[in-house]
């Protein structure tokens, strides 16, 4: 018997994209600005977030955090010390966060009372690249202790980001950090990417980072990786 051919023409990421669009609309309606923080494990997402939550609260703003982790709840406990509402998403082995997980963990949370929501993704430079979480901006962290060519090794992730943070900048000299090489790699994979250098430990560069957050809040741009509107063309970003 001859098989019949069935046209499907469906994207496998469509289900996530649909949920991400719903989330984006919810965030916009609630007036909360959302950042998706991505990096390899150990680049300093949690410390940066701890300091960021504290500084924003000192400035009279209302931040909150959703923290994705494969197995533990340690990060959420650390972040809760800032006084900001914090929830942990234990992915039980899953290597990335998906829009559906964000939606489920927002239940019962008064989004209207928040100014900023930070989503700390699972430490992984591959899988989270393809999952839109409804964020306003995706921020990729790269510490000076990592290789300068990381953007070239993980192009989908760096290409999908709206901003890059070079973290642990206080260690730059000690590690022989090659600044020019990093900027060149970033510019190659993601031309024009906004890049900031900071150290959450010493506080260096934190002011510029807060300025960036406020600027994104003021302009609420559409993230580079935002999923296209139904029936629309690509994101063009």
């Amino acid at each position: 018997m001859k098989p019949r051919v069935l046209e499907i023409r469906q994207g496998v990421f469509e289900k996530n994209d649909l949920l991400a669009r719903d989330l984006r609309a919810r965030f916009e309606a609630a007036g909360v600005t959302v950042f998706n923080l991505v990096s390899s494990p150990g680049a300093g997402k949690t410390l940066l977030l701890e300091r960021t939550l504290t500084l924003l609260r000192e400035g009279g703003l209302r931040p909150a955090a959703l923290v994705g982790d494969v197995a533990t709840e340690n990060d959420a406990k650390r972040l809760a010390r800032s006084g900001a509402p914090t929830r942990q998403i234990v992915t039980a082995g899953n290597c990335h966060l998906e829009a559906g997980m964000i939606g489920r963990h927002l239940e019962g949370w008064p989004l209207d009372d928040l100014d900023f929501l930070f989503i700390e993704n699972v430490g992984n430079l591959v899988c989270p690249a393809h999952y839109d979480l409804g964020e306003n901006a995706r921020v990729v962290l790269l510490s000076v202790t990592e290789g300068e060519d990381k953007p070239l090794k993980y192009p989908p992730m760096f290409h999908s980001a709206d901003a890059a943070l070079i973290t642990k900048i206080d260690l730059a000299e000690a590690t022989g950090f090659d600044r020019a090489a990093v900027y060149e790699a970033l510019e190659s994979v993601r031309p024009g990417i906004e890049t900031l250098e900071l150290s959450a430990r010493t506080g260096q560069g934190m002011e510029a980072w807060l300025d960036y957050l406020l600027r994104v809040r003021a302009t609420s741009p559409l993230a580079a990786f935002a999923s296209p509107a139904p029936g629309g063309e690509g994101t063009g970003a």
Partner: peptide, 21 residues
């Protein structure tokens, strides 16, 4: 010229399937 206007390359698409009754 640098460009971020990606027209193809992000997709993971199921195009067609062959089905036997």
């Amino acid at each position: 010229t640098p460009s971020l206007d990606v027209r193809q390359g992000r997709e993971l698409t199921i195009e067609t399937v062959e089905v036997l009754d």
